[in-house]
Design a protein around this nucleic acid. Sequence first.
DNA 1: ACCTGAACACCGTTCAAGT
DNA 2: ACCTGAACACCGTTCAAGT
Lengths: 211, 211
Amino acid sequence: MKPGPRRSVSQSDIVDAAFEILEEKGVAGVSVRGVAGALGLTPTAMYTYFDSKNALLQAMVEQLLAGIATRPGADEDAAAPAWRERVTTIALALRARLAEHAGGVVLVTSGPLDGPNALAVAETIIEAFVEAGLEVDDAARAAHAVRAFTLGQAALEAARRTAPVEASAQQPLWSDSRHPLVEQTARLDLDGEGDDEFAAAIGRVIDGYTS
Amino acid sequence: MKPGPRRSVSQSDIVDAAFEILEEKGVAGVSVRGVAGALGLTPTAMYTYFDSKNALLQAMVEQLLAGIATRPGADEDAAAPAWRERVTTIALALRARLAEHAGGVVLVTSGPLDGPNALAVAETIIEAFVEAGLEVDDAARAAHAVRAFTLGQAALEAARRTAPVEASAQQPLWSDSRHPLVEQTARLDLDGEGDDEFAAAIGRVIDGYTS
DNA sequence: ACCTGAACACCGTTCAAGT
DNA sequence: ACCTGAACACCGTTCAAGT
């Protein structure tokens, strides 16, 4: 492919390549140069497609959030009210997407969540709480809580997954002070990837706003 | 200060200098070279104090979390039960600390939260829920929810505060699709820094676990 | 309009050498 | 033990130039 006035790749191709690198090397490994190289482009050519690295990251966030707000097919067999299942489904999907790629959380945290897919997620959750009978403002508060909780859960998971840092190899700064309750409940693995624990937790949060 | 076998600065000095830079330039601006320069050291000298940049960041997290778990003075005038006020106080303090420095959230998300101060925060919240009458496992779940929600709230705040990216200057990809509920409730500023809204929200989360 | 090549001002980290 | 200086393999971004 020699230089020419025709686009040799699409924005979508670039985002896809960036996600591939994100999966392999984490968020720190995503570089303009690296993505360009993976596509056979010069780093400078990237600036034809995105104004900056940050714009690329924002586009990645949008793709990460794509499809989360779409209502699942009429799956109305459940005993729980439709709105409740819808909120739970979205929260689970959001968490799954964030956990899917290493660094997904940092990505989402790195800029304002005001893309169309981000707004669609917010809108859909508020809608569900309105359907639950909440007044609009309270529905927004509840939806915000669900988003914050889900993001925080994903953040705690991601933080735990990062390199164990060789533990106390470096720091005898903190000695063996006791945290008995933390140790006793470590087996619950609340920072871990249990869907059931998370679904139950979201249920509690919903309860806090609707009962 | 010419070279010599005596330490010219302390680990604490380095962490302090790093926080100063964090405040000025955000998390991306914190570099080994920059911190070294601020202290009049060579970049390589830094590796005498910390094994890697990551070790420095972990030390910063610990300092960020310092003192949050210490019980506030006997402030028992409130109508609310002591445990409830204690949880709320810690959550508010945690959020305030995370919001204090730009990039505090990314910092905390960048590695496992297993330092002594991080564990002390977790332990203290579990303790409070045990005091509330919860069984230990449920107390751990409730404490986890409080931590996740607080972290997520701080993350949403931080995300919103980052450069507005000139809005739609770059992307006509998403046109003016409607998100009426989001727009209608934007004035609530739930991603904003209202202590009252946050305290109320934490109250709802606590309710979800204790009622 | 799309792309290249060279350049600028940065990174984290390692290694040999000095005191 | 603590520190320097040089070096390696990287960054994001800009700018002039080619087709």
